[in-house]
Structure formats: C-alpha cells, structure tokens
Amino acid sequence: MTDRRRINGPAGTTIPPVFEDEDIKHDSKVVKGRSRAPDAVRRMFLKTGVTPSASGSAYLEYESSAKSGVSGLKLSCTVHGPRSLPRSSPFSPHIVLSTHVKYAPFATKQRRSYLRDPSERDLGTHLETALRGAIIADRWPKSGVDIIISVIEGDQDRASSNIQGDETWDMMNVLSGCITVASAALADAGIDCVDTVAGGVAALVQNAGEDSTPTIVVDPIPSEHEKILGACCIAYLPTRDEVTNLWFKGDLSASAMDLYTKLVENGILASTSANRVLVASLNETLA
C-alpha cells in the first residue's frame, strides 16, 4: 500500500554517489574482514532519561564500524505508562504490554514507509516476548504500558551498492539493541522487573577465502563477513540465568546439535556484555 497523504522520498534505494577514486577502489577490495576478536562486541553508548515527556526513556548507540560508509545502530526508546486501558479492552489482572518498533524513513538503504511493515511488526512481537519474561506483570492490574522504539540508524553498509540479503541479519542486530534499550527505559519508568534483560547476537560466519571453515562470532556485521550461515538472537536475564527470547535463523544442518548449543552460548555471552553496559548506565543515573 502506498502512502498518499505525505510527500515521500524516492521509494528505491538512496545511495550517495560513490566516485571512482583510488582510495575507494582500494577500500572495496578489502571489504571483508572483522576488526574485532570473535568474542568481542562493539562498544556501545546507553543513556536513560532522554525524553522528558515520557515516563521512561533511553537511547542506545552502537559504535559504527571502522570501515567508511557503514553506519552503526542508533535506537531511541520511550515508555509511556502505566496508564489506564481503553474502555473497549477486557479486564486484565496484569499489565498489558504493547510494543512498537519503527524504522525512521532514512534509517536503512531501502527507504521505509511511514506505516509499519511486516518486518517491523515481527520485531515488535519478538521484543514483547523478550520483555514479558522480565516484567512482574501482576504488580499493575488493569493498566497498560506502551513501549515505542524508533530505529534512527539501522546498522547497514550504505556504501556498497549490492543488496546481498543482509536485511534479515540486520534485523537480529536491531532486535538485540531493542531489547537492551527497552530494558533500560523500563527501569527508568519504574516498572517492576525481575532482572535487567539484555539482547545479544551470535552468528556462524564464512569468512573470505573459499577454503576457510565457518566460525562463530558475536555481534556480527554482515558487511564484514563473506557470508552468514546462521544467527541467533538471545534475550537473557543474567542473575536468574534464564533466556526469555530465542530467535534462530539460517541454514544449519539438523544433526549439528553442538553448533546450536555453541550459538546459544555465544549469544548469551554477547548479551552479558550488553548487560554490563546496561548496569553501568543505570548505576550512573543513581550516583
């Protein structure tokens, strides 16, 4: 469905012109290659209380990659409520969560519409599942809370012209960021949680070179690897040692059970790293 009420930008890809230059040429040859250790996540910045009008809010930024043209991840989350449910909704003895994830129109290479598309709804559902395990819902009967996340920058390689099906992998990184930033905003809003939930991504990647064996990395950037074979996004409660949401994607053989276990282990490792930032940021607001 097209949006005819607003003046929209071009529907196709918007890539800044890349001129033939010696530097760029050189750069494009060494596209692939990870600059971090396999078990190291990117540095991130997290701050709560950025939106004064909301009950709680948080802002999360992932360090952008060293490669030029690859933007990092920027997320802004607001929490409204607890507030009374609309009159039409049925009685609920616990809090009703509603999550909205929306990409800004300019967040990705492919321009996003103002209406939520299926992939954004999918992210919202995953986020709701991840948070529901962390919230003590029966502390707030008959009330609802709205969690709204705006993806300001979508963690994509804007300089490369080819779309290589990276979107599905980008969604995993975005989801892990969404979980972390929503957890910080919920703590800021004063909604009871059993723990601080944080998201993490692990992936099985094939690096450049035909003969290299697939390796497992955390916090993958699709543009840094030749091919991503499979990935998993985990929402993890560190003090409870519980996983609230698990999302697997990719082509893995069903027999390789230890591969699945290793991916989950590395996902938990990534979310523990994110949780350390979350705890430090929350302590900063108190001190």
């Binding site: 703590a187 009871d192 949680c193 059993v194 723990d195 601080t196 409660l237 560190p238 003090t239 409870r240 705890v279 929350l282 302590n283 108190l286 001190a287």
Partner: peptide, 8 residues
C-alpha cells in the same frame, strides 16, 4: 544503598 532490578 542503591539497587538496580535483579540485584540481590
């Protein structure tokens, strides 16, 4: 003196 969610 200060606590974050999930702290013992």
């Amino acid at each position: 003196t200060l606590a974050i969610p999930g702290q013992l």
